[in-house]
Design a protein around this nucleic acid. Structure first.
Lengths: 118, 118
DNA sequence: CAGTATCCGAGTCGATACTG
DNA sequence: CAGTATCGACTCGGATACTG
């Protein structure tokens, strides 16, 4: 067991580990989120929208998400090049599940604030 | 922006980032999961249950989860020492949200298998 | 426009040994 | 029993420069 995340050690039998592995990575959610809002985006649109991301990271992360079946990449054979990214159906289903987690997070945050005020 | 996870940069305003930050870490889910199954566990019970965890990591991670309000730590002033860990209510709510994500993961996994078979 | 290539730093985790 | 302390390794991501 040398991998950083334990869930990589049980990818085959644990669906939660599998899911978390897919969304794990600094830029994955930002990309997923941007595509959820704007539906279809070109490479440089994504880059402008996601604050601080480099070409390196955008290319790498979008490839990874594509390989997982989360996002779709359509390349048009034109000059200048045009590539459009969007969420797949699986990607859209993911959003639904994440909103549950976001809800829980929101409750946690407001509890924090209450206890801060003592 | 120097932190590894981008969600650390928006902890204040993004509930999803906040939630993911809490479950991020190699041993957090294993601990949460073990406590969800067994309800109340002592230190060495956890250690035996979670394959490969060291004292270092168990102590550190349980402290972190306690500080987030996910788990409860009860120390009994006895000799030999006894410490019991359990999930808080928030921790139990977290399980519910994670099950949604696990469900999504399960669908993803079975889609993978189908496409493997061609 | 939409990417690649290379090199490097920071943070996380593991191994091992020790303690009230 | 229930922890601490120290140090090193590995991986992820950042910065910068280049390309079809």
């Amino acid at each position: 067991m040398n991998s950083k995340k334990v869930y990589k050690s049980c990818l085959d039998n644990c669906p939660l580990a599998y899911a978390l592995n897919i969304i794990d990575g600094k830029w994955r959610l930002p990309i997923i989120w941007a595509l959820n809002k704007n539906k279809i985006m070109r490479y440089n649109e994504l880059k402008r929208d996601i604050d601080g991301i480099t070409n390196m990271m955008l290319t790498q992360t979008s490839k990874e998400l594509e390989s997982y079946g989360i996002i779709d990449r359509k390349q048009y054979m034109e000059i200048p090049p045009r590539v459009e990214y969007s969420l797949t159906e699986s990607g859209q289903d993911l959003i639904v599940a994440l909103k549950e987690l976001a809800n829980w997070g929101k409750n946690m945050q407001s509890n924090d604030k209450l206890s801060d005020m003592g």
